[in-house]
């Protein structure tokens, strides 16, 4: 997969200027707060059209000048730190709707089992903890079979043990479905464990783009 992106955005106190080409499947995004990580992910998802000068995935044009591909055709799912869920639907209904809307063939039962969602199915989002909400949002996204999954601290509310389990499953689904994943996290250890490539942002600019030769073994990034 190949994602090409050019951002240029001048906000009141922030200048985002980036040119990127990404070819790996697991990409970590690292940087201080306010360095433009969220803006980068939102721009790719099509939520910041004013900031995006150019965006294409595998040669398919997503945005260029005035042209903008509809959100429903991109299959790029952005997951915010605070999960966005429908307040009037139970967990099960959310999963079913995501499956229905995306005309997905993914096995719902398997997904529920994989992410241990059974006890939550009858509950509304307001009854879930923030970690449970994040797990639900991730499962919902995976059901929709994204081409691009954009995780913005989207696992940060999970405890250590749960996060490891969820990441294992996420890895599995990524291998099955073959989507590209951009993962914003402040946990450099996590990024080094799972990612094939890490991009480091600073003050809205690309500070460094680093291939990790093979995940799990690479210690190089600790040195930076």
């Amino acid at each position: 997969m190949s994602l090409q992106l050019k951002l240029n955005w001048l906000a009141s106190n922030f200048h985002l200027q980036l040119e990127l080409e990404l070819n790996n499947h697991w990409i970590g995004v690292y940087g201080q707060s306010g360095s433009g990580k969220t803006s980068l992910l939102k721009a790719i998802a099509g939520l910041l059209p004013a900031a995006t000068a150019f965006c294409s995935l595998d040669g398919e044009l997503w945005q260029h000048d005035c042209f903008q591909l509809a959100l429903s055709k991109r299959k790029a799912l952005y997951l915010a730190p605070d999960a966005v869920l429908m307040p009037h639907k139970t967990a099960l209904q959310q999963l079913q709707l995501a499956s229905h809307w995306s005309q997905s063939t993914v096995d719902l039962k398997q997904m529920i089992q994989d992410f241990e969602l059974e006890p939550l199915l009858a509950l509304y989002p307001s009854q879930l903890s923030s970690g449970q909400q994040q797990k639900l949002a991730l499962a919902q996204a995976l059901i929709a079979k994204p081409r691009l999954l954009l995780l913005d601290e989207a696992l940060a509310h999970l405890d250590h043990q749960q996060k490891a389990a969820v990441l294992q499953k996420l890895k599995l689904y990524q291998q099955q479905q073959g989507f590209m994943l951009l993962w914003v996290s402040h946990q450099m250890e996590d990024l080094c464990l799972y990612c094939e490539e890490i991009i480091w942002l600073k003050h809205g600019q690309l500070q460094r783009q680093q291939q990790l030769s093979s995940p799990h073994s690479n210690q190089l990034f600790y040195a930076i």
Binding site: A70, S72, R74, S102, A144
Partner: peptide, 10 residues
Amino acid sequence: LLNQSKAFGA
């Protein structure tokens, strides 16, 4: 919420 639902394909 609307954007996410659109991204799901609604």
